[in-house]
Simulated scan of single mutants.
Amino acid sequence: MTDNSAVPTLVVGLGCQRGCPVSTLRALLDQALQAHRIELSQVKALASIDLKREEPGLIELAAQLELPLMYFSSEQLAGYQPQLSHRSDIAFERTGCYGVAESAALALAEQLAQAPAKLLISRQKYAQATLALAGAA
Rank of each mutant, 00 (worst) to 15 (best):
M1K: 14
D3G: 03
N4M: 08
S5Y: 08
A6Q: 15
A6L: 11
V7N: 15
P8M: 13
V12D: 07
G13V: 04
L14Q: 02
G15E: 02
C16H: 03
C16R: 07
G19Y: 06
C20K: 04
P21S: 08
V22C: 11
V22P: 06
S23T: 15
L25W: 01
L25R: 04
A27G: 08
A27I: 09
A27S: 13
A27Q: 13
A27L: 11
L28N: 02
L28C: 13
L29K: 00
D30N: 11
D30R: 14
Q31M: 08
A32Y: 07
A32F: 12
A35R: 13
H36G: 10
R37L: 12
I38Y: 08
I38C: 05
E39A: 15
S41P: 10
S41E: 14
A45V: 03
L46C: 08
L46D: 10
A47L: 07
S48K: 02
S48D: 06
I49V: 04
I49Y: 06
D50W: 11
L51N: 06
E54K: 13
E54F: 07
E54V: 07
E54P: 07
E55S: 03
P56A: 03
G57L: 00
G57T: 04
L58F: 03
L58S: 09
E60R: 13
E60Y: 04
E60Q: 15
A63F: 09
A63P: 06
Q64F: 13
L65Y: 07
L65D: 03
L65S: 04
E66C: 11
E66D: 14
P68V: 05
P68L: 10
P68Y: 05
P68D: 05
L69Y: 01
M70Q: 14
M70P: 11
Y71F: 15
Y71A: 06
S74K: 15
S74D: 15
E75D: 15
L77A: 09
L77N: 07
Y80F: 14
Y80T: 07
P82M: 11
Q83A: 14
L84V: 06
S85K: 12
H86S: 11
R87P: 05
S88V: 14
S88G: 05
D89Y: 04
D89S: 10
A91W: 01
A91D: 03
A91S: 13
F92Q: 09
R94P: 00
T95C: 09
T95A: 08
C97F: 00
G99H: 02
G99F: 06
V100G: 01
V100A: 09
V100S: 09
A101M: 05
E102L: 07
S103E: 11
A104P: 00
A104I: 02
A105N: 01
L106G: 01
L108M: 10
A109F: 02
E110T: 06
E110A: 12
E110I: 06
E110S: 15
L112K: 07
L112F: 04
Q114L: 02
A115C: 04
P116Q: 09
P116T: 12
A117T: 05
L119W: 01
L120F: 09
S122F: 03
S122P: 11
S122I: 05
S122R: 14
R123N: 04
Y126C: 13
A127G: 02
Q128A: 12
Q128D: 15
L131T: 05
A132T: 02
L133C: 14
L133Q: 00
A134D: 00
A134E: 00
G135H: 05
A137Y: 10
A137G: 11
A137W: 10
